[in-house]
Design a protein around this nucleic acid. Structure first.
Length: 426
RNA sequence: GGAGGGAUGGCCGAGCGGUCUAAGGCGGCUGUCUUGAAAACAGCUGUGGCAGCAAUGUCACCGGGGGUUCGAAUCCCUCUCCCUCCGCCA
């Protein structure tokens, strides 16, 4: 959510930014009109309430002094005032809701240095790392490698749960578990994050805080009976940890890392990426979330991206960092970098992390504030998050990059201690 | 799942429709006294909206929402959460 004051004071600037974001539907003018009406109504209704407050006090005094007639007279007048207040309040409530709705549909503003572009074709590759591997045989896609090694089972996944579900077995399951434990250790030991184990099921209100509801309800799984929702990412519970709180002076930055499964219905992408484990309804992810002072936001984004890259570097997996242009920025992000691993079997770059700076956009919606100093007025924090990393696609990159001519897969050096010393999956 | 009891400011806690502008205490800040500190004494003490250059004014907030009333922390309805006991359970 943007600050309505910013829109009120710089409407043309905001509209120009919406154009850069390729968002033709952002209801900026509607928000301006509603804001105007809201303030007019507020002034009127508050005047009436001030009058009712003081006159009600007078009625109390009259009653005490036995001036029944005068009191009744004044009561009669106040009934009318009360009716007028009710009418204005009802209208104000509608306007408030409409304004909130309009504000909820206006995306975050990009930072000034974000490249302007119309869509993902104009994203910039900021840097690449590592050499693309050369094979003296035709590298296979991970689904062939996995099924041959009996570590991936698609058919039984479908039997149990339907399309887009699969099982990891034996060394495959252990490889994923090793990756999770190792990534968490790297982030907590070397990158300064503290680990969180959050609920995987949350209330609707929590999903509002991160903006997943109401707009993206179709992509969420839900238990109707208790109105609880399965999280689509750890970002949801972890960002909401401090919802409606004022963090004490000196407590920032707060850096959390959490491993969770993620659940997504993916109805909107039916038919896309059906092969392999690239896009399932259930997948695992290690997620980093930061709460920082506004002045530190951009520097923290740089380290966040580097923390995610570090995982790929330690796995010796070639990657590239892609900077989103304005036209491809996510709704809440002010700046965003994706990290993509090379998958030699699928012959494509796989997005394994998306690192975003949300400025105060999420904090405003989730009402997360902090005190710069003890006793100082609260300010909104800046939030950031990024995957560190998403498991299935790292699994793909590992299986495909470390495959050997005989169909076996070497275990990356850093994971061997987590695999009981196993060097080759055969 | 059953039965009961609760939710008030940073914390504890009073509050039986009108000086609630929320008592009192703790904590915190400022000042007096003191060489300094402690003690004592005095004053101050939350969040947000709107108007205003500002001083300031005004409204809202006693778990959330709705209602009754001229007037609600207080009465009514409803939801959420917490606690105690019973049942069930890894």
């Amino acid at each position: 959510m943007l600050d309505i004051k910013l829109i009120r004071e710089n409407p043309d600037f905001v509209k120009q930014q919406m154009a850069a974001l390729q968002d033709a539907h952002a209801p900026v003018d509607a928000a301006l009109a509603l804001d105007e009406e809201r303030r007019t109504l507020l002034t009127q209704v508050e005047e009436l309430k001030a009058r009712r407050n003081s006159e009600s006090k007078r009625i109390g005094e009259m009653m005490r002094q036995g001036q029944r007639a005068e009191a009744d007279q004044l009561k009669q007048e106040m009934t009318d005032v009360g009716d007028a207040i009710k009418t204005l309040d009802d209208r104000l409530k509608v306007v408030d809701e409409e304004l909130f709705d309009a504000m909820s549909r206006i995306p975050n503003l990009p930072l000034p240095w974000v490249p302007v572009g119309k869509d993902d074709s104009e994203n910039l590759v900021a840097r690449t790392w590592g050499e693309l591997p050369h094979f003296d045989f035709a590298p296979k896609p991970h689904w062939e490698i996995g099924e041959a090694l009996n570590i991936l089972d698609f058919e039984r996944g479908v039997k149990l749960s339907g399309s887009r579900f699969y099982l990891l077995k034996g060394a495959g399951a252990r490889l994923q578990r090793a990756l999770i434990a190792w990534m968490l250790d790297v982030h907590t030991n070397d990158h300064g994050y503290s680990e969180i184990y959050p609920p995987y099921v949350v209330r609707a209100q929590t999903l509002f805080g991160t903006g997943n509801l109401p707009k993206f309800a179709d992509n969420l799984y839900r238990d109707i009976e208790d109105d609880l929702w399965l999280i689509p990412t750890a970002e949801v519970p972890v960002t909401n940890l401090y919802r409606d709180e004022i963090l004490a002076a000196g407590s920032l930055p707060i850096c959390h890392v959490a491993y969770t499964p993620c659940f997504r219905r993916e109805k909107m992408s039916a038919g896309k990426d059906v092969r392999g484990i690239k896009r399932g309804h259930q997948f695992d992810k290690v997620e980093m979330v930061k709460f920082v002072e506004p002045e530190q936001g951009e520097a923290e984004l740089v380290t966040l991206v580097d923390n995610a890259e570090d995982i790929a570097r330690r796995l010796q997996l070639p990657y590239r960092v892609v900077q989103m242009c304005t036209g491809d920025l996510a709704f809440s992000a002010a700046a965003k970098y994706d990290i993509e691993l090379w998958a030699p079997g699928c012959n494509e770059w796989l997005e394994v992390s998306s690192c975003s700076l949300f400025t105060d956009f999420q904090a405003r919606r989730a009402n997360i504030r902090y005190r710069p100093e003890e006793g100082a007025k609260p300010r909104y924090v800046y939030t950031l998050n990024g995957s560190g990393l998403a498991l299935p696609r790292v699994m793909i990159a590992v299986l495909e990059s470390y495959q050997q001519a005989d169909g076996t897969v070497r275990v990356p050096d850093v994971l061997r201690p987590y695999m009981g010393g196993l060097e080759v999956i055969r």
